[in-house]
Design a protein around this nucleic acid. Structure first.
Lengths: 162, 162
DNA sequence: CAAGAAAGTTAGACGCAACTAAAATCTATC
DNA sequence: GATAGATTTTAGTTGCGTCTAACTTTCTTG
């Protein structure tokens, strides 16, 4: 049997190439990473420090997973970490975490206008937050401001939903 | 060496336990699965059939990955599939796919009101769509209706964003 | 209708992010 | 200061969804 010549399919991607998964990208921001950063900064703000056991509890994840991710984030320069000692966010990590938390809050504020139960709000925000661009976020923020200042609009909205 | 905080912290898990990952759930709906279903139904609607090569091109994924996922979806009863022949959605699969496409459209319509570039709209919808509950979707839909009927509101919004 | 091209599949591997079990380290208390 | 208990880390797996290389089947076209 003759060997088939490599096919070289060279596909033309859909619309705008969705950032192909080259394995060569080092400190890429993923959902899990963002969840950890968000959680860590919140723990630091509320308790003064972020311990693995608390991160694990908050994210409902096993402790060894926290260690693993901590080491990844440290390798990427987002936090500093000394074995068996503490975790500290680097400047970059803290900046990132702040942005993540802010994004979370903008989304939560918007969803709260819809009269949904807190559990739904929380779940949806958790899900969406990692996938929203700055631009859309700005729009959501402006939208929230409009809803804040126009109770009539909110009322119409809720009636339409029922 | 810091270490000066009570040990028995016992945080209350954020809000509502985020659906622990038991491996025992069989036909769970994931992001990738939804992307495939959406793509398959759209291909069927636009070309009459969904071929692996087109799915691969549309999703910017290698062909063997399509075969693999196709087999998974078939095993879960969402589509029917005969080797080297075609793909058909089952009733359940089509229902699911329709819902996914509808959700996609609701989101797109909302984002279009914000005057963003199509690429951003597309990327954000792609990202968010898999994580939005029916309730929030209804709210977004109502919101879109309000924006449709109130150009003044849209104008205020866009000005606030600039 | 026979090649060759195109499409589909199998086989084997990888990266991410999770898990469990068990070892290492730290802390509090006696 | 020894030691029990809490916390953290290491080691070894797992599942999902992806990849490439190489094969098989189907389609197309002279």
């Amino acid at each position: 049997m003759l060997r088939a010549v490599p096919r070289t399919t060279k596909l033309t991607p859909k619309t705008a190439k969705p950032a192909k998964r080259t394995k060569a990208s080092p400190a890429q921001s993923t959902v899990a990473r963002e969840d950890y950063l968000e959680c860590i900064l919140q723990l630091i703000q509320s308790k003064g420090l972020a311990r693995a056991v608390d991160i694990a509890t908050t994210l409902d994840i096993a402790q060894p997973s926290v260690t693993a991710m901590t080491q990844r984030l440290a390798a990427e320069g987002l936090l500093t970490y000394e074995k068996y000692r503490g975790i500290t966010l680097t400047t970059e990590g803290e900046k990132l975490a702040s942005a993540i938390i802010q994004r979370h809050q903008i989304l939560t504020r918007l969803l709260r206008h819809f009269g949904l139960d807190e559990a739904t709000i929380y779940r949806d925000v958790e899900g969406m937050e990692h996938h929203i661009s700055r631009k859309t976020l700005d729009a959501f923020d402006a939208l929230t401001a409009e809803l804040d200042r126009s109770p009539a609009l909110v009322t119409r909205l809720r009636e339409a939903m029922a």
